[in-house]
Design a protein around this nucleic acid. Sequence first.
DNA 1: CAGCATCCTTTCCGATACTG
DNA 2: CAGTATCGGAAAGGATGCTG
Lengths: 124, 124
Amino acid sequence: MHTDEFGKVVSANDCPIRTVFGRIGDKWSALVIIHLGEQETLRFNELHSMISDLSQKVLTVTLKALEADGLISRKIYPEVPPKVEYSLTDLGKSLLPAMNPLIQWSFANMPTIVASRAKYGNKK
Amino acid sequence: MHTDEFGKVVSANDCPIRTVFGRIGDKWSALVIIHLGEQETLRFNELHSMISDLSQKVLTVTLKALEADGLISRKIYPEVPPKVEYSLTDLGKSLLPAMNPLIQWSFANMPTIVASRAKYGNKK
DNA sequence: CAGCATCCTTTCCGATACTG
DNA sequence: CAGTATCGGAAAGGATGCTG
Protein backbone atom coordinates (compact mmCIF):
# COMPACT_ATOMS: atom_id res chain seq x y z
CA MET A 1 0.00 0.00 0.00
CA HIS A 2 1.34 3.36 -0.94
CA THR A 3 0.25 6.71 -2.21
CA ASP A 4 0.65 8.35 -5.59
CA GLU A 5 1.08 11.92 -6.69
CA PHE A 6 -2.54 12.68 -5.92
CA GLY A 7 -2.15 11.51 -2.38
CA LYS A 8 -4.67 8.74 -2.81
CA VAL A 9 -4.32 5.11 -2.13
CA VAL A 10 -3.17 3.14 -5.10
CA SER A 11 -3.95 -0.37 -4.17
CA ALA A 12 -6.49 -3.04 -4.90
CA ASN A 13 -9.95 -1.72 -5.63
CA ASP A 14 -9.30 1.73 -4.27
CA CYS A 15 -7.26 2.75 -7.25
CA PRO A 16 -9.15 5.07 -9.61
CA ILE A 17 -6.75 4.36 -12.41
CA ARG A 18 -7.33 0.67 -12.24
CA THR A 19 -11.06 1.11 -11.86
CA VAL A 20 -11.50 3.41 -14.82
CA PHE A 21 -8.82 2.08 -17.12
CA GLY A 22 -10.02 -1.40 -16.33
CA ARG A 23 -13.47 -0.53 -17.56
CA ILE A 24 -12.68 1.35 -20.72
CA GLY A 25 -9.68 -0.83 -21.32
CA ASP A 26 -11.63 -4.00 -21.65
CA LYS A 27 -11.99 -5.37 -25.10
CA TRP A 28 -15.06 -3.44 -26.19
CA SER A 29 -16.28 -0.77 -23.77
CA ALA A 30 -14.26 2.06 -25.25
CA LEU A 31 -15.66 1.40 -28.69
CA VAL A 32 -19.21 1.31 -27.41
CA ILE A 33 -18.74 4.61 -25.62
CA ILE A 34 -17.20 6.21 -28.67
CA HIS A 35 -19.98 5.04 -30.95
CA LEU A 36 -22.62 6.28 -28.54
CA GLY A 37 -20.76 9.56 -28.38
CA GLU A 38 -21.07 9.94 -32.11
CA GLN A 39 -24.64 8.82 -32.55
CA GLU A 40 -26.58 10.13 -29.53
CA THR A 41 -28.66 7.00 -29.27
CA LEU A 42 -28.33 3.52 -30.71
CA ARG A 43 -30.38 0.38 -30.58
CA PHE A 44 -28.92 -2.94 -29.57
CA ASN A 45 -28.63 -4.31 -33.07
CA GLU A 46 -27.28 -1.07 -34.43
CA LEU A 47 -24.39 -1.29 -32.01
CA HIS A 48 -23.99 -4.93 -32.82
CA SER A 49 -23.63 -4.31 -36.52
CA MET A 50 -21.27 -1.38 -35.96
CA ILE A 51 -18.92 -3.54 -33.96
CA SER A 52 -19.54 -6.65 -35.95
CA ASP A 53 -16.92 -8.92 -34.53
CA LEU A 54 -18.16 -9.12 -31.03
CA SER A 55 -20.71 -11.66 -30.01
CA GLN A 56 -24.13 -10.58 -28.93
CA LYS A 57 -23.57 -12.10 -25.53
CA VAL A 58 -20.48 -10.03 -24.91
CA LEU A 59 -22.23 -6.91 -26.13
CA THR A 60 -24.94 -7.59 -23.60
CA VAL A 61 -22.43 -8.02 -20.82
CA THR A 62 -20.55 -4.90 -21.86
CA LEU A 63 -23.70 -2.79 -21.95
CA LYS A 64 -24.79 -4.04 -18.54
CA ALA A 65 -21.42 -3.18 -17.05
CA LEU A 66 -21.49 0.31 -18.52
CA GLU A 67 -25.02 0.77 -17.28
CA ALA A 68 -24.05 -0.42 -13.81
CA ASP A 69 -21.27 2.16 -13.75
CA GLY A 70 -23.73 4.86 -14.69
CA LEU A 71 -22.07 5.64 -18.00
CA ILE A 72 -24.91 4.69 -20.29
CA SER A 73 -28.66 4.54 -19.93
CA ARG A 74 -31.06 2.02 -21.33
CA LYS A 75 -34.50 3.00 -22.52
CA ILE A 76 -37.04 0.31 -23.23
CA TYR A 77 -40.02 0.94 -25.50
CA PRO A 78 -42.84 -1.42 -24.58
CA GLU A 79 -43.62 -2.44 -28.10
CA VAL A 80 -43.74 -5.60 -30.11
CA PRO A 81 -41.18 -6.24 -31.36
CA PRO A 82 -39.24 -4.71 -28.50
CA LYS A 83 -37.09 -1.67 -28.99
CA VAL A 84 -34.27 -0.66 -26.71
CA GLU A 85 -32.20 2.45 -27.06
CA TYR A 86 -28.86 3.10 -25.48
CA SER A 87 -27.32 6.48 -24.90
CA LEU A 88 -24.63 8.11 -22.80
CA THR A 89 -25.55 9.56 -19.45
CA ASP A 90 -24.14 12.91 -18.42
CA LEU A 91 -21.34 11.04 -16.71
CA GLY A 92 -20.70 9.09 -19.89
CA LYS A 93 -20.67 12.26 -21.93
CA SER A 94 -18.16 13.83 -19.58
CA LEU A 95 -15.89 10.90 -20.23
CA LEU A 96 -15.64 11.56 -23.95
CA PRO A 97 -13.45 14.66 -23.88
CA ALA A 98 -11.24 12.93 -21.34
CA MET A 99 -10.77 10.01 -23.70
CA ASN A 100 -10.20 12.13 -26.76
CA PRO A 101 -6.49 12.87 -26.43
CA LEU A 102 -5.83 9.19 -25.99
CA ILE A 103 -7.91 8.36 -29.03
CA GLN A 104 -5.98 10.88 -31.09
CA TRP A 105 -2.73 9.46 -29.79
CA SER A 106 -3.87 5.96 -30.70
CA PHE A 107 -4.52 6.87 -34.30
CA ALA A 108 -1.29 8.82 -34.55
CA ASN A 109 0.96 6.20 -33.03
CA MET A 110 -0.60 2.87 -33.82
CA PRO A 111 1.67 2.34 -36.86
CA THR A 112 4.76 2.89 -34.74
CA ILE A 113 3.55 0.46 -32.13
CA VAL A 114 2.67 -2.22 -34.64
CA ALA A 115 6.06 -1.83 -36.31
CA SER A 116 7.86 -2.02 -32.98
CA ARG A 117 5.90 -5.08 -32.00
CA ALA A 118 6.75 -6.88 -35.23
CA LYS A 119 10.42 -6.02 -34.90
CA TYR A 120 10.52 -7.27 -31.33
CA GLY A 121 8.93 -10.51 -32.44
CA ASN A 122 11.66 -11.05 -34.99
CA LYS A 123 14.44 -10.42 -32.52
CA LYS A 124 13.29 -13.09 -30.13
CA MET B 1 -15.99 -4.21 -41.38
CA HIS B 2 -16.80 -0.56 -41.34
CA THR B 3 -15.18 2.80 -40.90
CA ASP B 4 -15.31 5.28 -38.06
CA GLU B 5 -15.20 9.03 -37.88
CA PHE B 6 -11.53 9.04 -38.71
CA GLY B 7 -12.13 7.12 -41.88
CA LYS B 8 -10.07 4.19 -40.70
CA VAL B 9 -10.97 0.58 -40.44
CA VAL B 10 -12.37 -0.38 -37.09
CA SER B 11 -12.10 -4.09 -37.06
CA ALA B 12 -9.97 -6.83 -35.62
CA ASN B 13 -6.32 -5.88 -35.18
CA ASP B 14 -6.50 -2.85 -37.40
CA CYS B 15 -8.31 -0.79 -34.82
CA PRO B 16 -6.05 1.73 -33.09
CA ILE B 17 -8.48 2.15 -30.27
CA ARG B 18 -8.49 -1.50 -29.47
CA THR B 19 -4.74 -1.77 -29.86
CA VAL B 20 -3.88 1.12 -27.59
CA PHE B 21 -6.69 0.86 -25.08
CA GLY B 22 -6.08 -2.85 -24.92
CA ARG B 23 -2.50 -2.26 -23.89
CA ILE B 24 -2.91 0.50 -21.34
CA GLY B 25 -6.20 -0.96 -20.24
CA ASP B 26 -4.76 -4.21 -19.06
CA LYS B 27 -4.51 -4.67 -15.37
CA TRP B 28 -1.14 -3.08 -14.77
CA SER B 29 0.39 -1.32 -17.78
CA ALA B 30 -1.13 2.06 -17.10
CA LEU B 31 0.24 2.09 -13.57
CA VAL B 32 3.70 1.11 -14.74
CA ILE B 33 3.70 3.89 -17.32
CA ILE B 34 2.50 6.44 -14.80
CA HIS B 35 5.12 5.48 -12.25
CA LEU B 36 7.86 5.63 -14.86
CA GLY B 37 6.53 9.01 -15.88
CA GLU B 38 6.98 10.28 -12.36
CA GLN B 39 10.35 8.78 -11.60
CA GLU B 40 12.38 8.96 -14.82
CA THR B 41 13.97 5.57 -14.26
CA LEU B 42 13.15 2.69 -11.98
CA ARG B 43 14.67 -0.67 -11.26
CA PHE B 44 12.71 -3.88 -11.41
CA ASN B 45 12.29 -4.25 -7.68
CA GLU B 46 11.50 -0.59 -7.23
CA LEU B 47 8.55 -0.99 -9.56
CA HIS B 48 7.61 -4.18 -7.83
CA SER B 49 7.46 -2.58 -4.42
CA MET B 50 5.57 0.44 -5.77
CA ILE B 51 2.87 -1.77 -7.18
CA SER B 52 3.06 -4.31 -4.45
CA ASP B 53 0.07 -6.43 -5.28
CA LEU B 54 1.16 -7.73 -8.59
CA SER B 55 3.26 -10.82 -8.88
CA GLN B 56 6.78 -10.59 -10.13
CA LYS B 57 5.92 -12.83 -13.02
CA VAL B 58 3.16 -10.52 -14.23
CA LEU B 59 5.39 -7.50 -13.81
CA THR B 60 7.90 -9.22 -16.06
CA VAL B 61 5.26 -9.96 -18.68
CA THR B 62 3.91 -6.42 -18.50
CA LEU B 63 7.35 -4.89 -18.90
CA LYS B 64 8.15 -7.11 -21.84
CA ALA B 65 4.92 -6.17 -23.57
CA LEU B 66 5.55 -2.47 -23.04
CA GLU B 67 9.08 -2.90 -24.31
CA ALA B 68 7.85 -4.77 -27.37
CA ASP B 69 5.51 -1.89 -28.13
CA GLY B 70 8.39 0.56 -27.88
CA LEU B 71 6.94 2.39 -24.90
CA ILE B 72 9.66 1.64 -22.39
CA SER B 73 13.34 0.83 -22.66
CA ARG B 74 15.36 -1.58 -20.63
CA LYS B 75 18.94 -0.90 -19.68
CA ILE B 76 21.07 -3.68 -18.27
CA TYR B 77 24.14 -2.96 -16.19
CA PRO B 78 26.54 -5.90 -16.41
CA GLU B 79 27.22 -6.09 -12.73
CA VAL B 80 26.90 -8.59 -9.97
CA PRO B 81 24.30 -8.48 -8.63
CA PRO B 82 22.56 -7.44 -11.82
CA LYS B 83 20.94 -4.07 -12.17
CA VAL B 84 18.25 -3.25 -14.69
CA GLU B 85 16.71 0.13 -15.18
CA TYR B 86 13.45 0.84 -16.92
CA SER B 87 12.44 4.16 -18.37
CA LEU B 88 9.97 5.59 -20.83
CA THR B 89 11.03 5.97 -24.45
CA ASP B 90 10.12 9.13 -26.32
CA LEU B 91 7.04 7.33 -27.54
CA GLY B 92 6.18 6.38 -23.98
CA LYS B 93 6.71 9.94 -22.82
CA SER B 94 4.40 11.23 -25.52
CA LEU B 95 1.72 8.95 -24.18
CA LEU B 96 1.67 10.56 -20.76
CA PRO B 97 -0.01 13.86 -21.66
CA ALA B 98 -2.53 11.90 -23.71
CA MET B 99 -3.40 9.79 -20.70
CA ASN B 100 -3.55 12.68 -18.30
CA PRO B 101 -7.12 13.89 -18.89
CA LEU B 102 -8.35 10.38 -18.38
CA ILE B 103 -6.37 10.04 -15.19
CA GLN B 104 -7.85 13.27 -13.90
CA TRP B 105 -11.30 12.09 -14.85
CA SER B 106 -10.69 8.82 -13.06
CA PHE B 107 -9.84 10.50 -9.80
CA ALA B 108 -12.73 12.92 -10.12
CA ASN B 109 -15.40 10.39 -10.96
CA MET B 110 -14.36 7.17 -9.34
CA PRO B 111 -16.61 7.78 -6.30
CA THR B 112 -19.62 8.28 -8.56
CA ILE B 113 -18.87 5.10 -10.46
CA VAL B 114 -18.38 3.05 -7.34
CA ALA B 115 -21.64 4.37 -5.89
CA SER B 116 -23.50 3.63 -9.09
CA ARG B 117 -22.07 0.15 -9.22
CA ALA B 118 -23.15 -0.59 -5.67
CA LYS B 119 -26.65 0.74 -6.29
CA TYR B 120 -27.01 -1.35 -9.41
CA GLY B 121 -25.92 -4.41 -7.49
CA ASN B 122 -28.67 -3.85 -4.92
CA LYS B 123 -31.36 -3.45 -7.52
CA LYS B 124 -30.69 -6.76 -9.19
C1' DC C 1 -35.81 -7.34 -31.71
C1' DA C 2 -33.29 -7.92 -27.86
C1' DG C 3 -32.00 -10.53 -25.26
C1' DC C 4 -30.85 -15.08 -21.75
C1' DA C 5 -28.75 -19.81 -20.89
C1' DT C 6 -25.36 -23.05 -21.65
C1' DC C 7 -21.11 -24.86 -23.04
C1' DC C 8 -16.53 -24.44 -24.25
C1' DT C 9 -11.97 -22.43 -25.29
C1' DT C 10 -8.62 -19.04 -24.46
C1' DT C 11 -6.29 -15.79 -21.89
C1' DC C 12 -4.98 -13.75 -17.62
C1' DC C 13 -2.94 -13.81 -13.47
C1' DG C 14 -1.30 -15.35 -8.76
C1' DA C 15 1.57 -18.67 -6.03
C1' DT C 16 5.49 -21.14 -5.69
C1' DA C 17 10.02 -22.86 -6.66
C1' DC C 18 14.31 -22.27 -8.85
C1' DT C 19 18.63 -19.67 -11.25
C1' DG C 20 22.66 -16.67 -13.44
C1' DC D 1 18.85 -8.55 -8.08
C1' DA D 2 16.23 -9.74 -11.70
C1' DG D 3 14.47 -12.65 -13.51
C1' DT D 4 12.61 -17.94 -15.59
C1' DA D 5 9.65 -22.18 -15.28
C1' DT D 6 5.63 -24.54 -14.07
C1' DC D 7 1.07 -25.16 -12.19
C1' DG D 8 -3.60 -24.18 -11.37
C1' DG D 9 -7.68 -21.27 -10.69
C1' DA D 10 -10.49 -17.57 -12.38
C1' DA D 11 -12.27 -14.73 -15.70
C1' DA D 12 -13.08 -13.20 -20.40
C1' DG D 13 -14.82 -14.13 -24.58
C1' DG D 14 -17.01 -16.88 -28.54
C1' DA D 15 -20.62 -20.24 -30.57
C1' DT D 16 -24.95 -21.96 -30.48
C1' DG D 17 -29.73 -22.56 -29.32
C1' DC D 18 -33.86 -20.77 -27.27
C1' DT D 19 -37.52 -17.05 -25.81
C1' DG D 20 -40.94 -13.01 -24.58
